[in-house]
Design a protein around this nucleic acid. Structure first.
Lengths: 152, 152
DNA sequence: TCAATGTAGATGCAACTGCAACTATCTGCT
DNA sequence: AGCAGATAGTTGCAGTTGCATCTACATTGA
């Protein structure tokens, strides 16, 4: 099932597309590099921990976490392994569903969030926020929202 | 040397940032998946071949190609290995600099560009261009341009 | 001229990702 | 009850990426 399309694709659209790819890749790479230079784990660890902390119960099932982040199931499985190995999360038995388990953020995980945030924050400011004014940021959000896939 | 910053970082800016990451990741993942489902190589092969074809001489040194794409040196080295293995490029001796070599797009490489473009094009239309009007595309370009690192 | 330093590119090894297959459990249906 | 899917999660293996290091050639400068 594929949306048709002999539709137009303007030069400007291609350029915009290329710019979108480039700028996000670029910013992301800078942030990862910044984190690494400070001996911090990658951004995905931050994202995962943040999702967990945002739950009132501080916990999620792997498949729930997986949907919130854009990760495949096996990558989620392994991310959990690594974060658990380093003590930032812990895995509990799930009694409601014996197939599954429950991922829970630890104190150490919370501490990591606190340590990573200033670095992340600064990178967002320097690479992104400080270069745009309020109205541009709003407009950008608005536009990006329109290309966000909203199926699920 | 790090740009200072106790600067503000608004909620809206964080949201916009998150949206930028998400949408580009998402679109990119869709395109890669689309290509893969059609048994095509990844987008980076397309990019590299396109850069080569855009040269009047159809060739570039690896380090030049590397700067144009956002790739590390070793990843470029290996990308070249793979594309050469599959016959889409060929590597020639470089007489001006005996350390280096010259990467040249083959007929087969050009053919690959032609085969990949319709798929790529359609994905850009469906995931991106068709969801925005002209003025939004312009505005997006304009905004993204401002956060593009322009050093070098 | 030749030593010091810089640049182009490759590569061994470890970590990470993708794919396909696998186990274990759950759900729906007859 | 009991079987046919569907779903949660894991894992072996192959391919890819990151890091550090290495070779070879180029450039600079005393």
């Amino acid at each position: 099932m594929e949306k048709s399309s002999n539709e137009e694709l303007s030069e400007t659209a291609i350029t915009a597309w290329a710019q979108l790819l480039r700028s996000s890749q670029n910013l992301l790479a800078n942030i990862e590099a910044e984190l690494k230079s400070k001996k911090m784990p990658p951004l995905s660890w931050y994202d995962a921990l943040l999702e967990l902390r945002n739950q009132k119960t501080n916990r999620l099932r792997p498949f729930e976490l997986q949907k919130r982040m854009l990760l495949t199931q096996y990558n989620m499985s392994r991310l959990i392994d690594r974060m658990a190995r380093d003590g930032f999360i812990e895995c509990l038995d799930c009694n409601e569903d014996k197939r599954g388990k429950i991922v829970h953020i630890t104190q150490s995980g919370r501490a990591l969030l606190r340590k990573m945030w200033p670095i992340y924050r600064l990178a967002i400011i320097n690479g992104f926020a400080s270069k745009l004014d309020e109205s541009e940021i709003d407009k950008l959000s608005e536009i990006l929202l329109k290309i966000t896939v909203t199926e699920d």
